[in-house]
């Protein structure tokens, strides 16, 4: 069963961190990604660029409208994701709890349809 771990966190907070703390944060994420890979449950993962460079598209009438910015203007945005394949929710929750994102933000565990 696949779960998408969505990392919600305050935008720009990372950029404001002192260099050594930021480096430590990056190392934590690398270690976590490596652990998922070693457990053979990682399907894909990515860090996302800030929502300021995001664009949102939807129809208005019969015209496609492109809007600058994210779907919802909130302080916390999705900053990255992990797509993992584990037997059940408990396993997914356990991995979500180990994600660095659960410390500096929150990790939403979303089951994949199927």
């Amino acid at each position: 069963m696949q779960y998408l771990l969505l990392i919600h966190s305050e935008e720009g907070a990372f950029e404001r961190l002192p260099k050594d703390v930021a480096a430590k944060g990056m190392a934590d994420y690398e270690a976590y990604t490596e652990a998922l890979r070693k457990a053979k449950i990682l399907i894909s993962s990515n860090r996302l660029r800030p929502s300021a460079v995001s664009s949102t598209v939807r129809y208005e009438g019969d015209k496609v409208r492109v809007k600058d910015g994210p779907f919802a203007e909130t302080k916390e945005q999705i900053g990255g994701y992990y797509l993992i394949d584990v037997p059940d929710l408990d396993a997914a929750l356990k991995w979500a709890g180990k994600c660095p994102g659960a410390r500096h933000g929150a990790v939403e565990v979303r089951p994949v349809w199927g």
Binding site: M1, P87, D88, L89, D90, P111, W113
Partner: peptide, 11 residues
């Protein structure tokens, strides 16, 4: 069902 919460004795 959809989040697959398994029927097991928790850790």
């Amino acid at each position: 069902k959809h989040a697959r919460i398994s029927f097991s004795i928790p850790d």
